[in-house]
Amino acid sequence: MSYKTVALFWVALAFLGLIDAGYITVKYYSGGEVSCPITGGCSDVLTSAYSQIMGFPVSAYGFIFYLTVLLLAFLYLDSRKRWIEAAMLLLGLAGFLFTLWFVYLQIFVIEAICFYCMVSALLSTTIVALALMAFLKTRPIGNRLST
């Protein structure tokens, strides 16, 4: 899979991610309650001590993450610069690390599952998986990074 294909998929995934994270972020600031399909644990998760970092809701960071994913994808589609390929991989991995942490918190610490968080986990996992597929296909990246 080429980075171009990955970027196209990223656009679609980031679009969904923006809606998902945007919804939770707006609900956080407007004080409204989220409707919670399937898993039913949203309010437990979203009001837990782990729902904010440095005063901002986790979903706001998620929103910025998806905005960055979208921006990188468009930058790549526009310019095809090599450094963006590396940036895509790093961004994907960073997002995935946070995803692992938050899924761990939901399952083992808060013991409640929030539907929107799991949607986001699925999206960010797909995002990193695609970037990895492109990376593995176009190795070695060492030469590319130095350009």
């Binding site: 945007g22 919804y23 707006v26 609900k27 407007s30 409204g32």
Partner: peptide, 14 residues
Amino acid sequence: TLVALAGFIVYVAT
């Protein structure tokens, strides 16, 4: 347009 559309969907949903 995609960002604006995402914003609009969030607006309608919330």
